[in-house]
Amino acid sequence: MIKIYSRMFVRSFFIQTVWNYERMQNMGFVFILKPFLDKVYLNENKKKEALLRHIGHFNTHPYMSGVVVAIVANLEKKIAEDNVTNAKLPDVNNIKDTMAGPLAALGDLFFFGTLRPTISFISIFMLIFFVKVLDDRFVGYGILIPFIFIVLYNVVHIAARYWIMFLGFKFGKESIFVLSSFKFLLTLTRYSGLIIAIAALVLYFSTFGFGLNGMFPDFNAQDAIVYGIVLVCSVLVASRFGGIFLFYTIILTCILMSYLGI
Protein backbone atom coordinates (compact mmCIF):
# COMPACT_ATOMS: atom_id res chain seq x y z
CA MET A 1 0.00 0.00 0.00
CA ILE A 2 2.97 2.34 0.68
CA LYS A 3 3.81 2.14 -3.03
CA ILE A 4 0.26 3.22 -3.94
CA TYR A 5 0.41 6.14 -1.48
CA SER A 6 3.76 7.22 -2.95
CA ARG A 7 2.30 7.12 -6.47
CA MET A 8 -0.65 9.20 -5.30
CA PHE A 9 1.73 11.72 -3.72
CA VAL A 10 3.77 12.06 -6.93
CA ARG A 11 0.58 12.36 -8.99
CA SER A 12 -0.69 15.13 -6.69
CA PHE A 13 1.85 17.49 -8.30
CA PHE A 14 -0.18 17.26 -11.52
CA ILE A 15 -3.60 18.10 -10.08
CA GLN A 16 -3.99 21.26 -12.20
CA THR A 17 -2.61 19.94 -15.50
CA VAL A 18 -6.08 19.53 -17.08
CA TRP A 19 -7.54 22.54 -15.20
CA ASN A 20 -10.68 23.57 -17.08
CA TYR A 21 -13.39 26.19 -16.62
CA GLU A 22 -16.19 23.62 -16.53
CA ARG A 23 -15.12 21.38 -13.63
CA MET A 24 -11.71 22.81 -12.69
CA GLN A 25 -9.46 20.21 -10.99
CA ASN A 26 -11.76 17.21 -11.49
CA MET A 27 -9.43 15.32 -13.87
CA GLY A 28 -6.42 15.95 -11.64
CA PHE A 29 -8.39 14.50 -8.73
CA VAL A 30 -9.32 11.37 -10.71
CA PHE A 31 -5.69 11.10 -11.89
CA ILE A 32 -4.43 11.05 -8.27
CA LEU A 33 -7.08 8.62 -7.10
CA LYS A 34 -6.72 6.15 -10.00
CA PRO A 35 -3.89 3.95 -8.57
CA PHE A 36 -5.81 3.62 -5.31
CA LEU A 37 -9.07 2.67 -7.05
CA ASP A 38 -7.16 0.17 -9.24
CA LYS A 39 -5.98 -1.49 -6.04
CA VAL A 40 -9.19 -1.53 -3.99
CA TYR A 41 -11.76 -2.27 -6.71
CA LEU A 42 -11.30 -5.66 -8.30
CA ASN A 43 -14.70 -5.55 -9.96
CA GLU A 44 -14.51 -3.53 -13.21
CA ASN A 45 -18.06 -2.17 -12.99
CA LYS A 46 -17.58 -0.97 -9.41
CA LYS A 47 -14.32 0.69 -10.42
CA LYS A 48 -16.03 2.47 -13.30
CA GLU A 49 -18.79 3.67 -10.97
CA ALA A 50 -16.18 4.94 -8.50
CA LEU A 51 -14.24 6.80 -11.22
CA LEU A 52 -17.44 8.36 -12.59
CA ARG A 53 -18.40 9.40 -9.05
CA HIS A 54 -15.34 11.68 -8.89
CA ILE A 55 -15.63 13.28 -12.29
CA GLY A 56 -17.76 16.16 -10.98
CA HIS A 57 -16.64 19.68 -10.12
CA PHE A 58 -13.73 20.00 -7.70
CA ASN A 59 -11.47 22.93 -6.87
CA THR A 60 -9.19 23.61 -3.94
CA HIS A 61 -5.67 24.79 -3.23
CA PRO A 62 -3.27 22.41 -5.05
CA TYR A 63 -1.15 21.84 -1.92
CA MET A 64 -4.22 21.07 0.18
CA SER A 65 -5.76 18.60 -2.27
CA GLY A 66 -3.93 15.75 -0.48
CA VAL A 67 -6.30 15.90 2.50
CA VAL A 68 -9.43 15.59 0.35
CA VAL A 69 -7.86 12.83 -1.75
CA ALA A 70 -6.90 10.90 1.40
CA ILE A 71 -10.36 11.27 2.97
CA VAL A 72 -12.07 10.19 -0.24
CA ALA A 73 -9.63 7.25 -0.57
CA ASN A 74 -10.53 6.11 2.95
CA LEU A 75 -14.23 6.31 2.09
CA GLU A 76 -13.75 4.44 -1.18
CA LYS A 77 -11.83 1.71 0.62
CA LYS A 78 -14.70 1.37 3.07
CA ILE A 79 -17.25 1.26 0.21
CA ALA A 80 -15.21 -1.41 -1.59
CA GLU A 81 -14.65 -3.56 1.53
CA ASP A 82 -18.25 -3.35 2.80
CA ASN A 83 -19.62 -3.86 -0.72
CA VAL A 84 -22.07 -0.98 -0.22
CA THR A 85 -25.00 -0.85 -2.64
CA ASN A 86 -25.74 2.34 -4.60
CA ALA A 87 -28.69 3.24 -2.38
CA LYS A 88 -26.55 3.31 0.78
CA LEU A 89 -23.54 5.13 -0.68
CA PRO A 90 -22.21 7.96 1.50
CA ASP A 91 -22.37 11.36 -0.22
CA VAL A 92 -18.70 11.50 -1.21
CA ASN A 93 -19.14 14.51 -3.50
CA ASN A 94 -20.81 16.48 -0.74
CA ILE A 95 -17.85 15.82 1.56
CA LYS A 96 -15.45 16.87 -1.21
CA ASP A 97 -17.30 20.14 -1.86
CA THR A 98 -17.65 21.00 1.82
CA MET A 99 -13.94 20.52 2.51
CA ALA A 100 -12.60 22.14 -0.68
CA GLY A 101 -13.66 25.72 0.19
CA PRO A 102 -12.09 26.07 3.68
CA LEU A 103 -8.95 24.20 2.58
CA ALA A 104 -8.53 26.50 -0.42
CA ALA A 105 -8.82 29.54 1.85
CA LEU A 106 -6.27 28.08 4.29
CA GLY A 107 -3.83 27.17 1.52
CA ASP A 108 -4.09 30.49 -0.32
CA LEU A 109 -3.58 32.45 2.88
CA PHE A 110 -0.67 30.43 4.24
CA PHE A 111 1.29 29.20 1.21
CA PHE A 112 0.69 31.79 -1.53
CA GLY A 113 -0.20 34.77 0.63
CA THR A 114 2.39 34.46 3.40
CA LEU A 115 5.05 31.77 2.99
CA ARG A 116 6.01 32.63 -0.59
CA PRO A 117 6.35 36.42 -0.04
CA THR A 118 8.32 35.75 3.15
CA ILE A 119 10.79 33.40 1.45
CA SER A 120 11.00 35.77 -1.54
CA PHE A 121 12.02 38.44 0.91
CA ILE A 122 14.62 36.27 2.57
CA SER A 123 16.25 35.84 -0.87
CA ILE A 124 15.90 39.55 -1.70
CA PHE A 125 17.50 40.37 1.66
CA MET A 126 20.32 37.92 0.87
CA LEU A 127 20.71 39.52 -2.57
CA ILE A 128 21.18 43.02 -1.11
CA PHE A 129 23.41 41.58 1.62
CA PHE A 130 25.61 39.84 -0.99
CA VAL A 131 25.95 43.12 -2.93
CA LYS A 132 26.99 44.91 0.27
CA VAL A 133 29.45 42.29 1.50
CA LEU A 134 30.91 40.68 -1.62
CA ASP A 135 31.36 43.70 -3.95
CA ASP A 136 33.32 42.41 -6.95
CA ARG A 137 32.88 38.75 -6.06
CA PHE A 138 29.07 39.19 -6.16
CA VAL A 139 28.73 37.97 -9.76
CA GLY A 140 30.24 34.60 -8.83
CA TYR A 141 28.06 34.03 -5.79
CA GLY A 142 24.89 35.62 -7.22
CA ILE A 143 23.65 32.31 -8.64
CA LEU A 144 23.12 31.15 -5.04
CA ILE A 145 20.19 33.58 -4.59
CA PRO A 146 17.58 31.78 -6.78
CA PHE A 147 18.63 28.45 -5.28
CA ILE A 148 18.25 29.78 -1.73
CA PHE A 149 14.66 30.69 -2.68
CA ILE A 150 13.84 27.37 -4.35
CA VAL A 151 15.42 25.18 -1.66
CA LEU A 152 13.88 27.06 1.28
CA TYR A 153 10.42 27.15 -0.30
CA ASN A 154 10.36 23.57 -1.47
CA VAL A 155 11.67 22.09 1.77
CA VAL A 156 8.57 23.54 3.46
CA HIS A 157 6.24 22.95 0.50
CA ILE A 158 7.04 19.29 -0.19
CA ALA A 159 7.17 18.39 3.51
CA ALA A 160 3.82 20.15 4.06
CA ARG A 161 2.23 18.38 1.07
CA TYR A 162 3.41 15.00 2.32
CA TRP A 163 2.28 15.70 5.89
CA ILE A 164 -1.12 17.04 4.73
CA MET A 165 -1.82 13.86 2.75
CA PHE A 166 -0.71 11.70 5.70
CA LEU A 167 -3.00 13.76 7.96
CA GLY A 168 -5.98 13.00 5.71
CA PHE A 169 -5.29 9.27 5.79
CA LYS A 170 -4.87 9.24 9.58
CA PHE A 171 -7.53 11.65 10.84
CA GLY A 172 -10.12 11.66 8.02
CA LYS A 173 -12.64 14.49 8.31
CA GLU A 174 -11.11 15.61 11.62
CA SER A 175 -7.90 16.63 9.81
CA ILE A 176 -9.31 20.12 9.05
CA PHE A 177 -9.43 20.79 12.80
CA VAL A 178 -5.84 19.55 13.17
CA LEU A 179 -4.83 21.87 10.32
CA SER A 180 -6.62 24.89 11.80
CA SER A 181 -4.83 24.30 15.14
CA PHE A 182 -1.61 25.34 13.36
CA LYS A 183 -2.93 28.89 12.90
CA PHE A 184 -0.07 30.25 15.00
CA LEU A 185 2.32 29.32 12.15
CA LEU A 186 0.46 31.73 9.87
CA THR A 187 0.78 34.60 12.34
CA LEU A 188 4.44 33.76 12.97
CA THR A 189 5.27 33.67 9.25
CA ARG A 190 3.40 36.94 8.59
CA TYR A 191 5.27 38.77 11.34
CA SER A 192 8.63 37.39 10.26
CA GLY A 193 7.79 38.32 6.64
CA LEU A 194 7.07 41.91 7.60
CA ILE A 195 10.22 42.13 9.72
CA ILE A 196 12.37 40.71 6.90
CA ALA A 197 10.77 43.13 4.38
CA ILE A 198 11.55 46.13 6.59
CA ALA A 199 15.08 44.81 7.26
CA ALA A 200 15.59 44.43 3.49
CA LEU A 201 14.42 48.02 2.94
CA VAL A 202 16.83 49.35 5.59
CA LEU A 203 19.66 47.25 4.15
CA TYR A 204 18.81 48.53 0.65
CA PHE A 205 19.20 52.16 1.78
CA SER A 206 22.40 51.43 3.70
CA THR A 207 23.89 49.61 0.68
CA PHE A 208 22.83 51.84 -2.21
CA GLY A 209 22.29 55.04 -0.24
CA PHE A 210 20.09 57.85 -1.49
CA GLY A 211 20.71 59.11 -4.99
CA LEU A 212 23.14 56.52 -6.31
CA ASN A 213 25.23 57.70 -9.30
CA GLY A 214 23.64 61.16 -9.16
CA MET A 215 20.15 59.91 -9.81
CA PHE A 216 18.60 63.32 -9.59
CA PRO A 217 21.47 65.66 -10.50
CA ASP A 218 19.58 68.88 -9.81
CA PHE A 219 18.56 68.15 -6.24
CA ASN A 220 20.89 65.62 -4.69
CA ALA A 221 20.10 66.74 -1.17
CA GLN A 222 16.41 65.96 -1.55
CA ASP A 223 16.86 62.41 -2.86
CA ALA A 224 15.91 60.99 0.50
CA ILE A 225 12.63 62.93 0.37
CA VAL A 226 11.97 61.65 -3.17
CA TYR A 227 12.55 58.08 -2.01
CA GLY A 228 10.20 58.60 0.94
CA ILE A 229 7.47 60.10 -1.25
CA VAL A 230 7.77 57.22 -3.74
CA LEU A 231 7.54 54.68 -0.92
CA VAL A 232 4.42 56.22 0.62
CA CYS A 233 2.76 56.87 -2.77
CA SER A 234 3.44 53.30 -3.92
CA VAL A 235 1.76 51.90 -0.78
CA LEU A 236 -1.27 54.11 -1.50
CA VAL A 237 -1.34 53.28 -5.22
CA ALA A 238 -0.92 49.56 -4.48
CA SER A 239 -3.91 49.67 -2.14
CA ARG A 240 -6.23 50.98 -4.88
CA PHE A 241 -4.64 49.70 -8.11
CA GLY A 242 -2.28 46.86 -9.01
CA GLY A 243 1.42 46.42 -9.74
CA ILE A 244 1.05 47.25 -13.44
CA PHE A 245 -0.53 50.63 -12.73
CA LEU A 246 2.22 51.38 -10.21
CA PHE A 247 4.95 50.38 -12.68
CA TYR A 248 3.66 52.53 -15.55
CA THR A 249 2.86 55.48 -13.27
CA ILE A 250 6.44 55.61 -11.98
CA ILE A 251 7.88 55.40 -15.49
CA LEU A 252 5.59 58.12 -16.84
CA THR A 253 6.34 60.34 -13.85
CA CYS A 254 10.10 59.86 -14.30
CA ILE A 255 9.87 60.63 -18.04
CA LEU A 256 7.81 63.75 -17.27
CA MET A 257 10.36 64.86 -14.65
CA SER A 258 13.21 64.36 -17.13
CA TYR A 259 11.29 66.31 -19.78
CA LEU A 260 10.76 69.19 -17.35
CA GLY A 261 14.45 69.03 -16.40
CA ILE A 262 13.91 68.22 -12.72
Binding site: G193, L194, A200, V230, V232, F247, S258
Partner: peptide, 29 residues
Protein backbone atom coordinates in the same frame (compact mmCIF):
# COMPACT_ATOMS: atom_id res chain seq x y z
CA UNK B 1 17.32 61.63 -24.61
CA UNK B 2 14.83 62.71 -21.94
CA UNK B 3 13.00 59.34 -22.17
CA UNK B 4 16.25 57.46 -21.57
CA UNK B 5 16.98 59.75 -18.63
CA UNK B 6 13.46 58.98 -17.34
CA UNK B 7 14.22 55.25 -17.59
CA UNK B 8 17.40 55.82 -15.59
CA UNK B 9 15.46 57.56 -12.82
CA UNK B 10 12.79 54.83 -12.90
CA UNK B 11 15.51 52.16 -12.60
CA UNK B 12 16.52 53.56 -9.21
CA UNK B 13 12.98 54.25 -8.01
CA UNK B 14 11.47 50.91 -9.03
CA UNK B 15 12.88 48.85 -6.10
CA UNK B 16 11.49 51.48 -3.69
CA UNK B 17 8.05 51.14 -5.32
CA UNK B 18 8.45 47.37 -4.99
CA UNK B 19 9.09 47.76 -1.26
CA UNK B 20 5.89 49.85 -1.06
CA UNK B 21 3.97 47.06 -2.78
CA UNK B 22 5.40 44.52 -0.31
CA UNK B 23 4.51 46.63 2.72
CA UNK B 24 0.98 46.81 1.34
CA UNK B 25 1.01 43.00 0.92
CA UNK B 26 1.61 42.60 4.66
CA UNK B 27 -1.24 45.02 5.49
CA UNK B 28 -3.22 42.51 7.54
CA UNK B 29 -0.41 42.03 10.08
Amino acid sequence: EFVLLGFKKAWYLMPIAGFGMVIYNFKSV
